[in-house]
Write a protein that binds this DNA or RNA. Structure first.
Length: 492
RNA sequence: GGCAUUGUGGCCGAGUGGCUAGGCAGAGCUCUGCAAAAGCUUGUACAGCGGUUCGAAUCCGCUCGAUGCCUCCA
């Protein structure tokens, strides 16, 4: 693990638009906040990709030996359906439609969220706070922002005063927007608003009598604005300034922009050193939308119960597929792409399975430490998992060559190779080797016996029997492979 | 319309101002009883049009397309 300590990591900071050398505030420690899901429906596959990217980042930091406090919230209130003044809380709306208690909706979809992430082999975050559990903190922040002159109360609601803020600070620096442009682009709408300016956003919304989710506050009964919860929870658990804030590209504006404004209005300084944004996932080249049918749920991929893909794909294959693209790139998911990834994934896993069987020699025919460093270099360059995977396939090739006796490896190098592969494949990328779990000793024994019988038949030139064994096993999804050092098998 | 991201070979996807990504698919060869697997060989790709440069797919400008957000519309 010593090598892991000395790696210099560069990450793309969307606040500055540059790759920067990463320096944590406290050496050896990292505070990271990622905006979690709003739990009003089944978790979206695109969300999974975002969270998976940060899961990989979390894993790599841990692998490097950092102590990471990773906070990912659950939004269980406050996310308005639209930004109009009569906006309804997404959770409350769903509850009304489904005739459920709001917390029933929250519970159902929180469980769904956790179930799916578990299938994808996510590491749980250090803290997973809920918005409704931090109403008091949010009210305190609102009070401070009002006292600092950056918010105003009207009719029981509190709004953030963007233009006043912009006179002293800079609103729009994350998303590259200028307030003047935004004002210029805003047409006069007939709809009356109690906001002073259309750019102002709600910190606290007055609850109408029919509104079911409500809390008392100094401004009357109401509920918090969506942007505020992240500020409250990140500040509480990570401090007024912390290292990394992540989320999907779609949250950059207005959500993250508002978080910056809130934190600066409250504490007087920028809350985050490095902003990371994961890019979107498209399906068959088009954006995913339930309304057009161009949409698929994670579970529908695993079970194969969908009209888009030709067969089911395991969570690890989907994960591998996603890791083959950089987290800042738009990724397109399709049947062909998943099929290709599945083959590549199986090839990688087979090579890892074969590691044990490699025979060692006095010298190695390739430079293992150089290769190992290249793996780190890939990840150190803004978590470039696709490059890492290309390096892993170089190792796969070497493993196959060694297996064929066309390449050699020493005992010491084999240990490094094994450790490095396991670290990157399982610990960092978070993949799971289903070959190890799908088969058990009894099956292995039976197949070994069949392989032995087939070998005898082949030696006796009884090819009818040997082919029967091979073909019938193949029909059952058990593939035999004749190598230089005997026959191996693979359960598909 | 505005802001941002983006457009790479049959498919998916990296990357760099001049030097191999990688996976999948295809072709040839080796191995094999035959296959499969594996290995070797094989691809005149960088949306279009201009410009900067000794040299650009990589930098700049414009055009077109995609995705996200804002606006509009609903």
């Amino acid at each position: 693990m010593q090598i892991a300590k000395n790696q210099e990591l560069k990450i793309y900071n969307s606040l500055t638009g540059k790759k920067e050398i990463f320096k944590p505030i406290n050496e050896g420690h990292i505070g990271m906040y990622v905006c979690g899901p709003t739990v009003y429906s089944n978790v979206h596959l695109g969300n999974c990709r975002t969270f998976m990217s940060f899961d990989m980042i979390f894993r790599y930091f841990k692998h490097l030996g950092y102590k990471v406090r990773y906070v990912r919230n659950i939004t269980d209130a406050g996310h308005l359906v639209d930004d109009a003044d009569d906006g309804e809380d997404k959770i409350a709306k769903k509850a009304r439609l489904e005739k459920l208690e709001p917390m029933e909706v929250v519970q159902r979809y929180t469980v769904d969220f956790h179930t799916i992430l578990e299938k994808f082999n996510f590491l749980p975050p250090s803290i997973e706070p809920t918005a409704t559990g931090h109403i008091i903190e949010q009210i305190e922040i609102i009070k401070t922002i009002i006292n600092n002159g950056f918010a105003y109360e009207i009719n029981g609601s509190v709004y953030f005063d963007v233009s006043t803020f912009n006179e002293q600070k800079e609103y729009g620096k994350l998303s590259g927007r200028k307030l003047e442009d935004m004002i210029a682009n805003t047409r006069e709408l007939a709809a009356q608003s109690e906001k002073r300016n259309p750019q102002d956003f709600a910190l606290w919304k007055k609850a109408e009598p029919e509104h079911i989710m409500r809390w008392p506050s100094p401004w009357g009964d109401g509920f918090p604005g969506w942007h505020l919860e992240c500020t409250a929870m990140s500040t509480k658990y990570l401090g007024e300034t912390f290292d990394i804030h992540g989320g999907g590209m779609d949250l950059k504006f207005p959500h993250h922009e508002c978080e910056i404004a809130q934190a600066e209005a409250c504490n007087g300084h920028s809350p985050v050193n490095y902003w990371l944004h994961a890019n979107m996932l498209t399906l068959n080249g088009k954006k995913m939308a339930k309304s057009t049918g161009n949409s698929i749920l994670p579970n529908e991929i695993f079970t194969g119960e969908n009209t888009i893909l030709s067969k089911p794909f395991s969570p690890s294959v989907v994960r591998f597929f996603m890791m083959q693209a950089h987290y800042t790139s738009i990724l397109d998911i399709s049947n062909d792409a998943l099929l290709a990834s599945e083959k590549g994934f199986n090839k990688l896993m087979e090579a890892i399975d074969n590691l044990d069987k490699l025979t060692v020699k006095d010298n190695s025919s390739f430079n293992i430490t150089q290769w190992q460093q290249q793996c780190y270099d890939a990840m150190n360059d803004d978590f470039n998992s696709p490059i890492l995977i290309s390096k892993l396939f170089e190792a796969v090739k070497q493993i196959n060559l060694i297996k064929e006796g066309k390449s050699t490896i020493t005992k010491a190098d084999k240990t490094i190779l094994t450790q490095t592969l396991h670290s990157f494949v399982f610990d960092v990328l978070g993949l799971e080797n289903k070959n190890n779990t799908a088969s058990d000793n009894k099956i292995d024994g039976v197949i070994a016996l069949l392989i032995e019988l087939r070998k005898e038949a082949r030696e006796n030139k009884d090819f009818a029997t040997s082919d029967k064994i091979r073909n019938q096993l193949a029909e059952m999804g058990i593939e035999l492979k004749d190598g230089k050092e005997g026959t191996t098998f693979n359960i598909l």
